[in-house]
Amino acid sequence: MDGTRTSLDIEEYSDTEVQKNQVLTLEEWQDKWVNGKTAFHQEQGHQLLKKHLDTFLKGKSGLRVFFPLCGKAVEMKWFADRGHSVVGVEISELGIQEFFTEQNLSYSEEPITEIPGTKVFKSSSGNISLYCCSIFDLPRTNIGKFDMIWDRGALVAINPGDRKCYADTMFSLLGKKFQYLLCVLSYDPTKHPGPPFYVPHAEIERLFGKICNIRCLEKVDAFEERHKSWGIDCLFEKLYLLTEK
């Protein structure tokens, strides 16, 4: 054995408090879109979701699917093309516009009456609605409950000090017999300040354990050449399924 860690023996890093005071403002996230600093976007979609999607959907149609901090995630069109209703929230209007443009979807925009100064973008087909606002303002819009949440790049982007508020927001959107698919990253948080932030299993239990059954479905090596600039040499991604207790 050469000592290389595999996707099945990932350790939890003990120094989980080192990132707790890290803060990125909404304006800084918007600047990332304006300046093209969106390496977190996956042009081909998320491979773990693609692998498990049909198993999760079980042939159902007409589900309501929520994408927190959606950006221009191509997976939104995957669900819409399968007959589901997609709702996303994203602070960057540019990111939302790029989604519709890159997916060749016509759309309209209208003000969100409950949140002055914000807009919702709706596909002409009517099954994709993307709200351009802070996720913490979203419950004011009465958008209803969801059958499924796809959380990739959301919890790991939320400032650590806001995670409890974020989890409570997610709980307010969950319908009966929900499936909450959650991706988190595992790396040494003493070497990279984030975002994306390190979210250990214990944190998921703390945030969601009282209401959800929590199961880790898969762990994969997600390290890429660009991650060397973070000062790390190891990065794993974990896919969790959260269901109603």
Rank of each mutant, 00 (worst) to 15 (best):
K177S: 03
D9N: 08
E203C: 08
N35D: 10
E27C: 03
I211S: 14
E225Q: 15
I128L: 06
V87T: 12
N35C: 14
P200R: 15
Q103E: 03
K122H: 02
L63Y: 07
V86Y: 01
F100S: 01
T4Y: 15
K72W: 02
L49V: 05
P195K: 00
L181C: 12
Y131E: 00
C212T: 12
F99Q: 01
E75Q: 04
C70N: 02
I112V: 11
N104W: 04
G194S: 07
E237D: 04
V220F: 05
E237M: 08
V184L: 13
G175M: 08
G126V: 06
P195W: 04
E225G: 09
V18S: 10
K228V: 14
D151K: 00
G161T: 13
N159Q: 02
K20S: 15
E93A: 14
E17A: 10
K37G: 13
N159T: 04
Q47G: 09
S186T: 14
N104C: 13
T4W: 13
V220T: 15
G161D: 12
H41R: 06
H227L: 11
Q97G: 08
T169G: 10
T6I: 12
G231T: 03
K145C: 09
E205V: 12
A222H: 15
V120A: 10
F178E: 01
Y180P: 01
L242G: 02
A157T: 03
H84D: 03
I232P: 04
G71D: 03
A39P: 10
E237V: 06
N159Y: 06
D162E: 13
Q22S: 15
F146M: 03
Y198T: 08
P116M: 09
P68Y: 00
L173C: 13
A73K: 04
K177G: 13
K228M: 01
I158L: 09
N104E: 10
L235W: 04
W230A: 14
L182K: 00
S108Y: 09
I135E: 00
N35W: 11
D147K: 01
L24E: 07
G45S: 05
I214S: 04
D233A: 15
L181S: 03
K50C: 13
W150G: 00
Q30L: 09
V89K: 00
K37V: 12
L217V: 10
P111S: 07
K210I: 15
G59C: 07
L181D: 00
K238A: 14
K50P: 03
M1G: 12
V89M: 05
D31T: 14
M1V: 10
H52V: 06
T55R: 02
M76C: 03
E203A: 09
F208V: 06
C212G: 10
L155M: 12
G144S: 10
D168T: 12
M148V: 15
L26K: 04
D81W: 03
S123E: 13
E12H: 11
Y13V: 11
S124I: 10
K72I: 04
W78Q: 03
K58E: 14
W150C: 15
E12S: 10
E224Q: 02
L182V: 07
F40G: 06
E114R: 06
K238L: 02
S108E: 10
D15K: 08
H192S: 06
A154S: 12
V156W: 09
C165R: 14
N104G: 11
I149M: 10
T4I: 04
Q22F: 10
G153M: 12
S186M: 07
D162W: 10
L69F: 09
T101G: 12
V199D: 00
S106G: 11
K177V: 04
S129K: 14
H46P: 08
K32C: 06
T25C: 05
S92F: 01
V199G: 00
V34S: 13
F146Q: 05
S186F: 13
K122C: 09
L53T: 06
K72E: 05
V23G: 11
I128G: 00
H41K: 02
Y187S: 08
G83R: 03
K20Q: 15
T55V: 10
T25N: 14
A73L: 13
F178R: 01
T141C: 04
F56P: 04
W29G: 05
A39W: 08
R5M: 11
A222S: 11
E110L: 13
R215A: 14
R226W: 12
E110V: 10
H227S: 06
Y187I: 07
T141E: 04
C212D: 01
R5E: 15
K228T: 02
G88P: 05
L63S: 09
A157H: 14
I128P: 01
A157W: 06
E98T: 15
N159D: 07
Y166T: 00
G71R: 05
A154H: 01
S134F: 02
D9W: 05
F171P: 02
H192L: 07
S123W: 04
E218W: 07
T118G: 13
P111D: 13
T190S: 14
F171R: 11
E27W: 08
D9L: 02
M170A: 03
Y13I: 15
V184K: 07
C70W: 03
I204E: 01
L235E: 01
G59L: 10
L181Q: 02
P139L: 11
E27A: 15
Y240I: 12
K119S: 10
K191P: 03
T243S: 13
K72Q: 10
D233V: 07
E12Y: 02
E205C: 08
F56S: 08
T16G: 13
T25M: 10
W78G: 02
G194C: 07
G36I: 08
V220C: 03
G71W: 03
P139S: 05
P116G: 07
K122Y: 08
H46L: 05
P195A: 05
P68T: 01
L53H: 07
N142K: 03
S125A: 08
K228P: 09
C216S: 11
N104A: 11
Q30K: 02
V74G: 05
D221S: 09
A154M: 05
G231V: 05
L53M: 14
E109G: 09
A202K: 15
S7R: 12
S229C: 00
T16D: 06
N159E: 06
F56K: 15
G161M: 14
L181R: 01
A73W: 04
A202D: 04
K51E: 14
H52E: 13
P196V: 04
R206C: 04
G3M: 13
L241T: 15
M148N: 01
P196L: 03
H52S: 09
E12T: 10
L235T: 00
V74E: 06
L49R: 02
G194A: 07
H41Y: 07
C212M: 06
E12W: 10
K228S: 11
E237G: 03
C70F: 02
F223N: 12
E114I: 02
E203R: 02
S124D: 13
K32P: 03
Y166N: 00
E27P: 06
S85P: 04
S229F: 13
F56A: 01
A202L: 04
I112G: 05
K177F: 10
L173R: 03
K219A: 10
